[in-house]
Write a protein that binds this DNA or RNA. Sequence first.
DNA 1: AGCTGGGACTGAACCGGTTCCAAGCGTACG
DNA 2: CGTACGCTTGGAACCGGTTCAGTCCCAGCT
Lengths: 334, 334
Amino acid sequence: MPAGIREVAARAGVAVGTVSRVLNDAPGVSAPTRERVHRVIAELEYRPNLRARALSTGRTHTVSAIVPFFTHPSSVARLRGVVEGLEASGYDLVLFNVGAARLGRDLAETHAAERSDGVLVVSLRPSDAEVRRLRRPGVPVVLVDAEHRALPRVVIDDVAGGRLAAEHLLALGHRRIAFVGDLPDRTGRFVSSQRRESGYRLALAAAGAPPVPELVRLGPHDARHARRDAAALLALEDPPTAIVAASDTQALGALDAAAERGLAAGAPGGLSVVGFDDLETAAHVGLTTVRQPLRESGRLGAELLLAALSGEPAAEQEHRLGLELVVRRTTSEP
Amino acid sequence: MPAGIREVAARAGVAVGTVSRVLNDAPGVSAPTRERVHRVIAELEYRPNLRARALSTGRTHTVSAIVPFFTHPSSVARLRGVVEGLEASGYDLVLFNVGAARLGRDLAETHAAERSDGVLVVSLRPSDAEVRRLRRPGVPVVLVDAEHRALPRVVIDDVAGGRLAAEHLLALGHRRIAFVGDLPDRTGRFVSSQRRESGYRLALAAAGAPPVPELVRLGPHDARHARRDAAALLALEDPPTAIVAASDTQALGALDAAAERGLAAGAPGGLSVVGFDDLETAAHVGLTTVRQPLRESGRLGAELLLAALSGEPAAEQEHRLGLELVVRRTTSEP
DNA sequence: AGCTGGGACTGAACCGGTTCCAAGCGTACG
DNA sequence: CGTACGCTTGGAACCGGTTCAGTCCCAGCT
């Protein structure tokens, strides 16, 4: 049974208020008293009970992140940024994973705002009702890679990104360009893939390339399904010469499919593939991709949250980060 | 200002104790009363204050993981397992990142045990003193990929793993086999690399291959330094024909170095490389590697912790998971 | 000497739940 | 008809901190 503040007070011959002031380095305690209290604290190995402190002050020194954690490697990258941004702040991070089971459920059920001083929602679009329930007076909420008009947020322009990828392939001379992306999810949580897809469509249309329905394949967001979709594309009688993937994960699946058919990706005559994200793996496999600042998005989100926590008025509501095409080895002329 | 339990009680015309009983589905409340309280709760959008509950019950329904999070992709994989194992339990996860700054500091400074009901230490070897301070009565601690005789733990046999990698190369006919691993860290937190190295040494010795000091290169644990070390090895006048890397991350660096010199890894006459971990990337680049069950280790750790939390007596103290050589494209005859 | 002001310190009230003992009430049973 | 028992309910005490109004004491000033 660890000692409490009252026992410390008793042993030091002072009142609990004084011990509390010593603990918090508050003024109004003479040096000798402070010293004496410190000695008793060390002697008893006393550690203040953080739960009690949290109840009393209303602060937990904790920040929650609601994240589709294992489903998306990109979320992990953003989380790295969040951790980085929180590093020196004294705030700890509570993680709420949103797996398949929780996707359809209310994000407020995580009790994120009740548990912590601030909330970060990563790569999940909250509904209006959720935003209402998620917010608590005094508990700021910031979105990373998600949008809601009422909340400060860090976003990218997915449409422009999709366009960037397709334009790169068009410039190389490709005309039959396929798209491998996500099925529109019924929960409405994820919209990036659809937006990237419309960027792809816009680029093709602008180049006068007619849209070909059979070249657009949508499936669950993972490498396995993407590989299957890409394999189906390559098995067409008039197969595409290039694929735009909605993410690096899916692009890697497409590369696997190409390798399976003996097509060296990026070699002339082979299949060209463009990904999206620029995960670490992309560099290692030489994947051409649309880089989005994943880590930076997390860090910026954390910083916005910290600013709000320290009482600074919310500055600009929407922070739009830039995209950049990174050309590596998986794209070349058709 | 959200409503409190006393206000709910007042509006429902009952005492706080009754409301509390309703909240916790405790017996001893008549159906009509229960119903009435529920109606008021819905009406006021009342949510019990979790901090207060935590103080009162001593439980936070929270589990802490102390993890070298962004430094090691393998930690992320383990964390996936932890999240998975915790999924259905009702426990949330608090993450304590141990970055460069915290490596030298006391793990107990995280206050992990004060903040939560159980603690998981991942891939970090705690000292005796830390274990003493980390433990709190009633707060179980479980180690994942770390050892301490006094704590339940999930481990692998790193020495055997290093041996497995080297033996594979020896069997292929390699004789000049290099090792790229971590510098022994001054904090003593990480020992895997050294152990894998000694497995490598044992295998070479057993095969009668003399140890060659210049073939062992140690550096910081990342791909960039590994690439540099591998490049130096390849620039030797009598370069190695194969490299055992202490991790996939480092193996990827070695592959980059080989590619830079125009050596296709795994092609006959090229450089053979064996990694350790079997990260997802390994499959995509075709890396031969020693697979350790990363996700499973996390899940098992979480399960052990949950078992301890539900009062089950700690079963076996040490759980040793198996290793498996996964042969892909980066190894072949010299 | 008397008064004022300020620093050190005390301890009760409070944060918002849970818990447990006591009390009220209705029913069944002797 | 009285009593005992069980089910509901009430409400105070408690968890372990923080905070603040108030007390005490002493130095400085007139």
